[in-house]
Design a protein around this nucleic acid. Sequence first.
DNA 1: CGTGCCGTTGACGATATTCAAGTGCAGTGG
DNA 2: CCACTGCACTTGAATATCGTCAACGGCACG
Lengths: 248, 248
Amino acid sequence: VGRDNPLVERLRAFTPLSPAQAAMVRALADPQAVKPMRRDLIREGDRPRAILLLAGWACRHRTLEDGRRQILQVLLPGDLCDLHNAVLGRMDHSVGALTEVRYAELAPERLEELEADPDLRRALRWQAAVAAATQREWTVNIGLRNAMERLAHLFCELFVRLRAMGLNDGQACDFPLTQVDLAEATGLTPVHVNRTLQEMRRTGLIVLDRRRLTIPDLCALAETGLFNAAYLHLGPAGQEPRAPRVMW
Amino acid sequence: VGRDNPLVERLRAFTPLSPAQAAMVRALADPQAVKPMRRDLIREGDRPRAILLLAGWACRHRTLEDGRRQILQVLLPGDLCDLHNAVLGRMDHSVGALTEVRYAELAPERLEELEADPDLRRALRWQAAVAAATQREWTVNIGLRNAMERLAHLFCELFVRLRAMGLNDGQACDFPLTQVDLAEATGLTPVHVNRTLQEMRRTGLIVLDRRRLTIPDLCALAETGLFNAAYLHLGPAGQEPRAPRVMW
DNA sequence: CGTGCCGTTGACGATATTCAAGTGCAGTGG
DNA sequence: CCACTGCACTTGAATATCGTCAACGGCACG
């Protein structure tokens, strides 16, 4: 589907953009690159670079010396990454492609131009604030919830974020995370994720098969995951799905 | 001890400040307020306000509907809070005083002035980037580590942050967190925290009594907590303790 | 001298991990 | 076309870690 630049869509959920402003945002995506599935875009120790994800799924992740790995954040099309981390000398974690991804590295000059516009500066701050709120919510998710709640919460977050970008397909969406990925994102073991998923399937909370997720009853899933979308701070545009539909 | 404004000290760890710049930063602290122990400075649902903590300990925390509570971040003197969250309509979590605190609410105009100075803008970004990195590290801590590792890591982080501000006392520091607080910060139960602390005391990793923490061997504690201070991005000034001392 | 909070203890149980082995499917090469 | 390989997923049994419940002790404060 010939969509607009996903960052334009994203920022429009927060504030209206003039044609000139939209053009400035689109210009960010100009020198594009592609990275194959399961390769890192940025590695721990690299100098930080600002990145705009245009298509595909990516994640921030960190690996301990003994090999244990934690997925810190899932990045979807339209997500910005390390916009302001350039002030830090080196990355303290990595950013990896979960699927094949298309992305753009953002030239500092272009970013300066955007920051010069008060509306865009506010919109970029909103984006950064939402990313920080999401990181906090992940801390809550892992610290406070049990296995099924954690998985339900993660499914809700990703589905709602995809839906806000029009990347869902009714009650279904692509879902490229493996059970190992889910384990690394939720702080569980792959075995326990497997058993918990089976229980969620048995009770009809989710259908998850061949990298495809269907949520028959989002309301029910949100209840079991104690999911409240407030932390995503979806603007007025994001609070209702793009295609009119009964809300939960 | 008559110290400089703690934010001035903090930012100087990142970049030198001219007298004029330091004066602008000091001006932020002007209308000061005090909040008694265990009261919230900002509540979930409030409009976000930018806050500078001048003395005492505070924390961000979030409570689920069923009463479970998570401490998301510990705020120490010199920490800034919600500088850029004003773009969000409402707080999705609370900020509470762990001890009696002295703080300042920052007028947006004053912040604008600071942001107009490129050096200060960079310094404030560094501060925000470190806060984000710390939040990620907490996700790792809770997601990947067991009880003793989590506590050891938390002790290391807080001690190193205090030391970078000169708020330690050799190998000791104030430590106002109760065992319930530690439990809420690490995603454990108070009972399990208690047992784990006893084990840490038995093995001589820590001395913790009457709100006072002593770390006989920081290196050993860092090893058991898999603590690596890189994520705190302490500048050149912060990498060595203020009083010359053998580093671990 | 009570009252309340914080810390401590014991017994028991639930949740999640570990280890090890096996299944199914997709892609590869003979 | 079919064996072969690799990867994701699945299963079972034994175990570890951590949680729950309930009660008690000490200390500070009023």
